[in-house]
Design a protein around this nucleic acid. Structure first.
Length: 350
DNA sequence: AAGGCGGGGTG
DNA sequence: CACCCAGCCTT
């Protein structure tokens, strides 16, 4: 079987028309690859277009402030990607005169660029014969070659990387790599792959053994953690509120949110008011408290479920150091907060 | 080697 | 509901 030949023929007849396939500018390829980490193309595409428009070159991105970058990234998730993106843009612009490294080894040294992304950029931009292994590649190869090694283990990673390297078309690694991923995304899909019309149907070992639905094998991850969030939506007489920036190591680092009281369980109004955290954050005596939703909003992350209550705290006085509700949309916020604001703010504030 | 890190789509 | 997505970083 001429693997790369079958694959390439399929690709040329089926590939999507995507903006980053019209260029070999390493800046644009890099940007697209970072955005598409653990992200579907349909979800990432509008963000890619926004970024290219706002930051046409690595110098433009490097010159931006981190708030701008995070705001444009808002909603895409995995915000460390945005922070690393910005950091690497500054490094390339300032230390490398705007010229990206032109090989796998040097690319991999950059923040946010791992094995997959370094291989992708090196092959697509510089024709370096290095194989990419992403979720699509795991799926396609595990099925065609009937490999049951769990993909999220060291052994699995090494085995699939080696196989991909052996199959790689060294004369055109850029096309081969993209073809393998596109084939996984469009044809050899997780569910209901198009096996009857597959170019590999005569060779696919998993299909012969009816093991398609078993592959790829993946070790299950730990279960989700439940957390209880109480957001204090301060509402001062001068139409101001308070926002805080999340710091430290957890979720949404760098994004903004209302003052937060996290609790071990769902809180009733009296429990909230009598809590130490509340006393500390609300020093005034003259306020009224109202829960915005009748039941908590459940925001689901891949590894946490956040049971969230928004408490509107209306004060009789004005705030000296707050931010206006009219400016709130300039801040990068988690989707959880964005959704609340869309319900809470009057239309002319949006 | 294991766990943390988002949000959205699918069946 | 579980699973997956053009993965990477920290511990």
């Amino acid at each position: 079987m001429q693997f790369s030949k079958l694959l390439t023929v399929w690709y040329l007849g089926n590939k999507r028309d995507l903006p980053w396939r019209k260029t070999r500018d390493p800046y644009k390829i890099w940007l697209s690859e970072i955005m598409l980490q653990q992200t579907r193309i349909e979800q990432g595409l509008p963000y890619y277009l926004k970024f290219i428009k706002a930051f046409p070159t690595v110098f433009d991105l490097a010159a931006a402030n981190s708030e701008q970058v995070l705001k444009l990234w808002q909603g895409l998730g995995y915000y460390s990607r945005a922070r690393n993106l910005h950091s690497t843009a500054k490094y390339v612009a300032e230390e490398l005169k705007g010229i990206f490294p032109d090989n796998y080894s040097d690319l991999k040294k950059l923040k946010g660029i791992g094995d997959y992304t370094a291989s992708a950029i090196a092959s697509i931009c510089y024709d370096e014969p290095v194989a990419v292994v992403d979720g699509n590649v795991y799926r396609v190869l595990s099925r065609i070659f009937n490999i049951h090694t769990p993909i999220n283990t060291t052994a699995g990673n090494k085995e699939f990387k080696k196989l991909a390297e052996e199959l790689l078309d060294k004369n055109d690694p850029a096309t081969f790599n993209q073809a393998l991923m596109e084939f996984g995304a469009l044809h050899c899909k997780p569910q209901n792959p198009a096996c009857p019309v597959c170019p590999f149907k005569d060779y696919c070992l998993a299909l012969q053994k009816q093991l398609i639905t078993e592959l790829p094998v993946k070790i299950k991850k730990s279960k989700v953690k439940k957390r209880y969030f109480n957001y204090l939506v301060f509402n001062f007489q001068n139409d101001q509120t308070h926002l805080e920036q999340r710091r430290g190591k957890g979720i949404w680092r760098g994004l903004y949110q209302f003052p937060l009281i996290e609790s071990e369980k769902l809180l009733k109004e009296k429990e909230l008011i009598s809590s130490e955290d509340f006393q500390e954050k609300v020093s005034s005596e003259s306020f009224s408290l109202k829960k915005f939703h009748s039941s908590p909003v459940v925001h689901k992350l891949s590894h946490q479920h956040l049971f969230t209550q928004f408490w509107v705290v209306k004060f009789e006085e004005k705030s000296a150091d707050g931010i206006s509700f009219k400016e709130i949309k300039q801040y990068p916020v988690p989707v959880l907060i964005e959704n609340f604001l869309n319900d809470f703010l009057p239309d002319d504030y949006k």
